[in-house]
Simulated scan of single mutants.
Amino acid sequence: MSRDTPLSLPWMLVDIGNRRCKAVLIDPRRWDADQTLAPQTVALESDHVFWHSLPTEPIHWWIGSVHRPTLRSLQARIERLRPRDRQTVLTAADFPMEIDVAAPDGVGIDRLAAALGASASLQPGESAVVVDVGTAVTVDLVREEKEGPVFAGGAIFCGPYLAARALHEGTDALPLIEPPNVAPPPLGRDTQAAMASGLYWGLVGAVRELAERMGPGDGAKCRIVVTGGAGESLAEQLPGDVHYDGALVLRGLGMAVNASARRRQ
């Protein structure tokens, strides 16, 4: 057996989404779920600066992916360029939480990671609505119970970029617009402004409604934790105890890796 253990090699946490990939290098000896993370957004096939910045010694790639072609491409690139490295693709079984849905293995790793990351700030009896604004928007509920966190399911709908593309491709006259990153006037005075308003405030309204309906409704504390590219502006529009964490998915991956690596020692 190799003298390298899952806790002796630096961790490269990788979050492969449908449009973007984020990565952060972690010293496992200093891992803390509350630490500040500064991930890079990388183009894994073409970002030569990223690949040349990697340490010369072996590292362990821990990968959470919702995009299979990009995952396969990354795995082949690691094998070709860094044959001494280890790599592990995380699955639902690696997450130290109960997954209380009909088909746990069918839940996106990004949803599980975001929920686990959000659970780090919860006490037993508390809940969080976890919102990830990406190609798709996911709104999920995680509960902290005495035995640990519970992923309870949630909702999925089109993210702003996908919705903008659908409006353009599904109609004859509507243009393709860039979804706004800041709040536009609700009353659009031309077609593009009206589309921007609908994309932005429609997202806000959908998330508000889902968060209210998913919450415990019995006076128990339920915070909202938001992540994703367009999430920071969204978080400013939501009521109550709202927190934005741009590295939430990677934080959850790190928590899963920490638990998994210790089991594998």
Rank of each mutant, 00 (worst) to 15 (best):
A220W: 00
I99G: 02
A247I: 08
P186S: 13
D245W: 04
I109W: 01
Q192E: 15
D47M: 04
R165G: 05
A120T: 10
G106F: 01
P124F: 10
L116I: 10
L25S: 10
V182Q: 15
G231N: 09
Q75W: 01
V225M: 08
L44E: 01
L71M: 07
M195G: 09
Y200A: 03
L141M: 13
A92H: 14
H60T: 07
E57A: 14
V182P: 00
A193C: 06
T5F: 10
A33W: 05
T70M: 07
I177A: 09
P186D: 03
M1T: 14
G217C: 11
V101E: 08
V107M: 07
L162K: 05
S53F: 04
E209G: 10
G198P: 09
S2H: 13
A43Y: 09
V137H: 04
A173N: 08
S197N: 11
R213G: 04
S46T: 14
K221L: 11
P185M: 05
E232M: 13
G205Y: 06
Q87N: 04
L162I: 11
A261Q: 09
E145N: 01
V139K: 00
T227R: 03
G170N: 11
A128Q: 05
K221V: 12
P39F: 08
G240A: 08
S119H: 04
P180Q: 12
R263K: 15
L90W: 02
G134R: 06
E232V: 09
A120F: 04
V150R: 15
L199H: 02
P83A: 14
D32C: 13
Y161E: 06
D190W: 06
E209V: 00
G228K: 02
L250V: 08
I59R: 08
T135W: 05
W51N: 03
A152K: 14
A93P: 00
E212K: 12
L176M: 14
H67Y: 10
A114V: 06
R111H: 09
A103Y: 12
A114L: 09
E178Y: 00
H60M: 11
P216K: 02
P184K: 04
E57G: 13
G246F: 03
T36G: 08
A163Q: 12
P39V: 13
A235M: 07
L250M: 07
L112W: 05
D110S: 07
P55K: 11
H52R: 15
R82H: 03
W51M: 04
V107W: 02
G154V: 01
D94H: 15
E79P: 00
D47R: 02
L141Q: 12
L253V: 14
I156S: 01
E126Q: 15
G198Y: 04
A261P: 11
I63N: 06
C158D: 14
D85V: 06
L122A: 12
T41P: 02
A113E: 02
A173P: 00
A114K: 02
D4N: 12
G219N: 09
M214E: 15
D34H: 14
L187P: 00
A103T: 14
F151L: 07
A247Q: 08
A261K: 02
E98N: 11
T70A: 09
G205C: 03
P104G: 07
E98A: 15
S65W: 06
A164R: 03
G125D: 06
Q237I: 08
L9G: 07
G219D: 10
P179N: 09
P83Y: 12
A113V: 06
R264D: 07
R189K: 15
G231A: 11
S73Q: 14
G117A: 11
I78N: 03
W31H: 06
D241C: 03
H60W: 13
